[in-house]
């Protein structure tokens, strides 16, 4: 362990810019670096992604390792794990952080076992123990009903971090950093998966994860028609529509708008939960909202324990009247 130095984040690029989760990871890494007197590096893997390096430095990286190779164009476990393993062994970081994303959860879990260490997934808090200097990792378990704190004696210490759990630092384009290019040196024959097709569900309007107002519906909406009303309300509020899992499972709305533990993590200023009971797994995705507004006919529904304001009653009566009044008051 004496040789392990620095905090490395595994960055992700999204349409040739640094993904927001990666900015959050850099923010978390800078905090840990301050506690440990250490350096922050970012590992960027992909094809045609070198442009992301400068952005990573702006958001807090002291050093960026770039592995740019046509074989790394799509995320493929074998290729990315081998690449991350190579760089990790070369750099020997003390901490490796990845995002709890499609890529991060697949990559980090396998990489940890490849590196003979442990990883804690989906963390919402990372601190350094004052005496041991080990990471103390807090993660929700039991669907969000509980939290657990984990540590490990093994290095590198690894974690994936939940979206929106950490804050990025203010970007500073004057920051200086070093960019190191690493050759992938991959054997194409050792990559055992192929991405044949990518299917993207088009959602018009504001992205759910970025919206400052989210209107979400649950099983109690009863079918796709009701969601049209929620969509209209979301539009008037210049927000986005979300859903709990049952409407997604039933095909009333696209799977991609599921909010929760295994769906999107949102933290809008206002989250309007309509006919959603407030299961721990749903709250896992919206509990970070600044204000939850609950509309539910069951006064005992758990969602009222999470909400700041609530109305008890039938959404079929409440939503149209609420929408009309909002239009009137806001002049929209």
């Amino acid at each position: 362990m004496a040789d392990n130095k620095g905090i490395m984040i595994i960055a992700e690029a999204l349409n040739s810019s640094l993904a927001s989760i990666s900015k959050e990871l850099l923010g978390a890494a800078r905090k840990l670096a301050a506690d440990l007197g250490d350096e922050v590096s970012a590992l960027v893997i992909g094809s045609g992604i070198a442009g992301v390096a400068a952005e990573a430095i702006t958001f807090g990286a002291d050093k960026v390792f770039i592995v740019d190779d046509p074989l790394l164009k799509d995320y493929r476990t074998d290729a990315w794990v081998a690449t991350a393993e190579k760089v990790a062994k070369q750099v020997n970081p003390r901490i490796i952080l990845a995002g709890q994303t499609t890529i991060g959860r697949d990559l980090a879990s396998r990489l940890a076992f490849r590196l003979n260490t442990a990883v804690t997934m989906d963390c919402i808090d990372l601190t350094v123990d004052a005496t041991s200097k080990q990471l103390m990792l807090t993660k929700p378990v039991y669907g969000g009903n509980a939290r657990a704190i984990f540590t490990s004696d093994l290095y590198p210490q690894m974690a994936t971090v939940r979206a929106k759990a950490m804050s990025p630092i203010a970007p500073d384009s004057a920051r200086k950093g070093e960019v190191v290019t690493v050759a992938a040196g991959l054997d194409a024959a050792a990559i055992r998966t192929n991405v044949l097709q990518k299917v993207i569900a088009e959602v018009e309007g504001i992205k759910l994860e970025d919206a400052s107002v989210v209107v979400s519906g649950g099983r109690g909406i009863g079918g796709p028609e009701g969601f049209k009303q929620l969509e209209e309300l979301a539009k008037i509020l210049k927000g986005a529509m979300g859903a709990s899992r049952p409407p997604c499972d039933s095909g009333w709305v696209p799977e991609t708008i599921q909010v929760g533990l295994t769906g999107k993590i949102v933290s809008p200023d206002v989250y309007i939960a309509v006919a959603i009971s407030g299961s721990s797994q749903h709250i896992a995705g919206c509990g970070g909202s600044k204000n939850i507004i609950a509309i539910n006919r069951d006064p005992e529904a758990n969602i009222f324990k999470e909400a700041r304001f609530g109305v008890v009653g039938d959404w079929k009566k409440i939503v149209p009247a609420f929408t009309a009044k909002v239009k009137e008051l806001l002049g929209r």
């Binding site: 939290r147 540590t151 490990s152 909400a307 700041r308 109305v311 008890v312 409440i318 939503v319 149209p320």
Partner: peptide, 29 residues
């Protein structure tokens, strides 16, 4: 390889304000 130091339930501090009215439409407004 990893140790669990603690398992606990997060505390909820929020307190909801229930908005009422003469009927559901009124409460909504």
């Amino acid at each position: 390889r990893s140790k669990m130091l603690k398992l606990f339930q997060p505390v909820r501090e929020g307190k909801v304000e229930i908005i009422t009215g003469e009927n559901e439409e009124d409460a909504a407004a």
